[in-house]
């Protein structure tokens, strides 16, 4: 069923001894996975470690690999479990301490509209970081990365109905956060004009 997934084809080649196929999988998925891990654990260095660990496990599991889902679903499930374990660790630094670490908005001189966009981007990141971890994961995978609810359900090992609820709750919370952010911005602008 999943044999048409090009990543599954690569993984099967790797299982059969083609080491270059593993490098191709890394090349295709390390970037998106790193972004996902950064959003989940909020620390760039930890995210890098977890991506490394996820691919390490993929490498070592090759002899047992059977295509029961898309490759990306399997990879994200491994990474999600690693991230959830990491989030349970008590010595983990607080998410918000790392936001400048993860910030995706580039720094440097820019126009007013670019600065507004940057501020809004930071507000979205902050709001996303404040969501409960499973809401954050479900919303990111679905709304940002375009995974289907079925895939997200498989990654998070929950039902599709639960994914639907998580995604909606997360999205609503973000709308409320951003709504209050925009209200604050409007108030600040009005004060500045007055």
């Amino acid at each position: 069923m999943y044999q048409s997934d090009p990543d599954v084809v690569l993984m099967l080649s790797f299982r059969d001894g083609d080491e270059a196929a593993f490098d191709q999988l890394f090349e295709r998925w390390a970037g998106p996975l790193l972004r996902y891990m950064e959003r989940m654990v909020g620390d760039a260095a930890t995210a890098e470690e977890l991506v490394q660990e996820a691919f390490f496990r993929v490498h070592k599991a090759r002899s047992r690999y059977e295509p029961r889902a898309r490759f990306s679903t399997w990879l994200y499930r491994i990474a999600t479990n690693l991230a959830l374990n990491e989030l349970k660790r008590p010595r983990r630094r607080h998410f918000h301490e790392e936001e400048e670490n993860v910030g995706l908005v580039s720094q440097g001189p820019s126009s007013e509209s670019e600065m507004d966009a940057r501020k809004k981007g930071t507000a979205v990141e902050q709001a996303l970081a404040d969501l409960p971890e499973r809401q954050r994961m479900a919303l990111w995978l679905s709304a940002a990365e375009g995974h289907s609810y079925a895939e997200v359900a498989s990654v998070l090992e929950i039902t599709e109905k639960a994914v639907k609820a998580l995604v909606h709750r997360g999205r609503t919370a973000l709308v409320e956060r951003l709504g209050s952010y925009e209200d604050d911005t409007r108030t600040t602008v009005r004060r500045g004009v007055a």
């Binding site: 995706l104 979205v124 996303l128 940002a144 990365e145 609503t172 709308v175 951003l178």
Partner: peptide, 15 residues
């Protein structure tokens, strides 16, 4: 309003 959030999240994927 909800669609705007989608747009904001998708823009975070870009870089």
């Amino acid at each position: 309003a909800l669609a705007e959030v989608n747009g904001a999240l998708q823009s975070m994927v870009e870089p």
